[in-house]
């Protein structure tokens, strides 16, 4: 597992260069109250630096999963494991991840705190409100509501632990306030603990934000339009099969498959909870391709992103 040194160095430089302007932060960003800034920062950084474990439920539509999870930090390295207690007997582990390694999504979450030079981080895309929260997994929470400022993303309600700033509950809401997905701790302990073994064990990858992977596949392509606030999650070559993006709260990935033969042009859609897979068959510069946009975004966003895929 490779480390994340270059990212840390870059982020540090980035944060320091903006330090001088911090005082002006909330003046330039009327949507961003200091309380929200602190909460976002604490939620993001503590999730990486605090050890905890527990049982989480995931509800999507009529379906409910129960997941055991553990997050441990030792010698500055994170080990995260989730294991399914219902459905497929599977677990996913990510170990050896530097607790200071911050990927673009978390940079966006935390940047809100540091930025003052006219960049307001997440607050250009969401309006945040803090309110007293529920009691979740036996703990008192603060409620952080993130309402989208455009139609390109979903809304969220986070219940954040008052003591540790860990996210205890996360609800994804459609524009009509329908609940699309809900993660919630049923129980939580402030220490890492062993997680059930499983028949299928996957070691999560560590896609590096700045060092592109070696694999390439055929056609050079790009996405010429993204909803405001979305940035690439990692450095990928133009010929990569996949490109992923995040706005700090949501993420989606775009996949381009060159096809051997032309297919009838068309589009197809599958939605599961907050996740959409939108597939379109088309010709780009006379080459038949299949474009898929997959992520936790509204259907129209996926459609517009697919529409913005071009060959270079």
């Amino acid at each position: 597992m490779h480390g994340c040194r270059s990212l840390n160095a870059r982020f540090l430089a980035f944060a320091l260069s903006l330090g001088a302007a911090t005082a002006a932060a909330t003046d330039n960003c009327p949507n961003l109250e200091p309380e929200v800034v602190r909460l976002l920062q604490a939620m993001s950084s503590n999730a990486q630096q605090v050890s905890y474990s527990g049982v989480v439920t995931l509800q999507r539509g009529g379906d409910m999963q129960v997941i055991e999870m553990s997050h441990g930090v030792q010698n500055g390295e994170e080990t995260e494991v989730i294991s399914r207690l219902t459905g497929q007997d599977a677990r996913v582990e990510r170990s050896g991840h530097s607790a200071g390694c911050m990927h673009p999504g978390h940079q966006l979450l935390q940047a809100s705190a540091a930025l003052g030079s006219g960049v307001c981080g997440l607050s250009t895309s969401y309006r945040f409100r803090v309110a007293p929260g529920d009691r979740i997994a036996g703990r008192a929470a603060l409620r952080l509501r993130a309402e989208p400022l455009d139609m390109y993303r979903f809304g969220y309600v986070f219940e954040i632990d008052r003591d540790t700033a860990l996210m205890l509950k996360s609800t994804t809401l459609a524009a009509d306030q329908r609940v699309l997905e809900q993660f919630q701790f049923a129980s939580i302990e402030m220490q890492a603990s062993p997680v059930a073994e499983a028949a299928t064990a996957h070691q999560a990858q560590h896609p590096h934000p700045h060092e592109p992977p070696a694999q390439e596949h055929g056609l050079p392509w790009e996405v010429v339009w993204l909803p405001e606030g979305f940035v690439p999650t990692d450095a990928v070559p133009q010929r990569s099969l996949r490109k992923s993006y995040t706005d700090g709260l949501a993420s989606f990935s775009v996949f381009l498959e060159p096809l051997a033969r032309a297919i009838k042009p068309g589009e197809g859609l599958e939605r599961q909870g907050s996740t959409v897979a939108y597939t379109r068959g088309l010709q780009l510069q006379g080459r038949p391709v299949l474009v898929t946009v997959l992520g936790e975004i509204p259907t129209n966003t996926a459609r517009m992103v697919a529409d913005a895929v071009r060959l270079r």
Binding site: M43, S44, A47, V56, L58, R60, Q65, I67, M69, H71, E80, V81, I82, R84, V92, R94, H103, P104, G105, H106, L109, F158, M167, S170, E181, F183, H202, A204, Q205, H206, P207, T233, D234, S244, T246, G248, L249, A250, S251, S253, Q272, G273, S274, T275, G295, E296
Partner: peptide, 16 residues
């Protein structure tokens, strides 16, 4: 893999 490093839910996106 990307959602789990770039959204606030940690590893939970794998549950999707």
């Amino acid at each position: 893999e990307h959602a789990s490093l770039n959204t606030p839910q940690g590893m939970l996106p794998f549950a999707r």
